[in-house]
């Protein structure tokens, strides 16, 4: 019995860790930072996984006080969210193009959710092992069942936590930069007033631009959210590299909305001018949870975004 409990806990623990590492790999492109950020998140994942793994064995052994630790765990992982938010807020000032508060909140929420995912994976693994034991199966079978169930939970949670990307709600096409006097325009939409002749020339020579065309009313409202647009600007500038320094506000990428049709346009001066790369980056920018909108019009039509 002792041995069986030990095996259950270890296997559930490993499944929980696997869930954390799996989610880490998926998102390493944007965040967290290497190597310290990764280590601290893996350690938190280990703690989460352990809590999930021991919850059921503790109950089984009639150690009911162990459940109070789960409350502690929930508190702990709320702190993970705070920690992420604070650290991202602190480095916000050092970004050439800020992430924006909406994006930060989204990232912080994702980290909290991933820890819960780890707890659930470990918990379901250990439940599966216990159920298998109920059928008088050997330790080996219990282990296999725990691994299979854990894996299924990981897949389901991965799908549940999957973020919508811009290309699912909108089409992104290359656009044309033009000037009307000092006004920078992309496909006819005025973006901003660029006063210096030299800056205008750089925009015309090196700038690339895109137009994001929402697929429906919901997407249009989502893209209208300024937090969402800030996230797009940030992702584009981080992943392409931006030709700008702190004393050159002229070259800050600004995503502006065409009030007539809800299309969003953006011009950017990257280090490497390839508009197809920019289209790719925008396509793969996540739609922020807080920016998602569901309009009455689409409800009436019965559309799903």
């Amino acid at each position: 019995m002792e041995k069986e409990i030990g095996v259950t806990i270890v296997i559930s623990l490993l499944m929980g860790m696997l869930a954390r590492i799996y989610m880490m790999r998926v998102d390493t492109r944007q965040y967290p930072t290497h190597p310290q950020g990764i280590v601290s998140h893996l350690t938190l994942g280990l703690i989460a996984s352990f809590l999930g793994a021991v919850a059921l064995p503790a109950l089984w052994e009639k150690e009911f006080s162990a459940v109070t630790f789960l409350a502690l765990a929930a508190q702990q992982f709320r702190d993970v969210r705070n920690l992420e938010r604070q650290s991202l807020d602190n480095i916000e000032l050092t970004e050439l193009v800020p992430r924006g508060t909406a994006y930060i909140e989204d990232i912080a929420k994702a980290f909290e959710a991933r820890n819960y995912m780890v707890i659930l994976t470990a918990l379901f693994s250990s439940i599966a092992a216990y159920v298998a034991r109920g059928f008088d199966s050997s330790i080996f079978v219990q282990g296999v069942v725990a691994v299979i169930v854990g894996y299924i939970v990981i897949i389901i949670m991965k799908l549940a936590l999957r973020r919508t990307l811009i290309h699912e709600i909108a089409d992104v096409i290359p656009a044309k930069i033009e000037f009307e006097g000092p006004l920078l325009t992309v496909n006819g939409v005025v973006i901003m007033n660029i006063g210096l002749e030299n800056s205008r020339r750089i925009f015309l020579d090196k700038g690339i631009a895109i137009e994001i065309i929402p697929k429906n009313e919901d997407a249009s409202a989502t893209l209208g959210n300024t937090g969402q647009r800030q996230a797009i600007q940030h992702n584009a500038s981080v992943q392409l590299g931006i030709r700008k320094d702190v004393d050159e506000p002229d070259f800050t990428p600004v995503a502006r909305r065409n009030p007539d049709n809800g299309n969003v346009v953006m011009a950017l001066i990257p280090m490497y001018e390839d508009v197809n790369l920019l289209v790719d980056v925008i396509n793969n920018t996540p739609v922020l949870e807080s920016a998602k909108r569901k309009t009455l019009i689409s409800n009436r039509k019965g559309d799903e975004i």
Partner: peptide
Amino acid sequence: GERLALLVSKVTMGMVHYLGSGIYVIVKH
């Protein structure tokens, strides 16, 4: 005007906007 606007904008970290008729404003955004 162009040169002076650039110099002032570098000092203030502001952005230069052109309003026509030879007028530039430097705005902090």
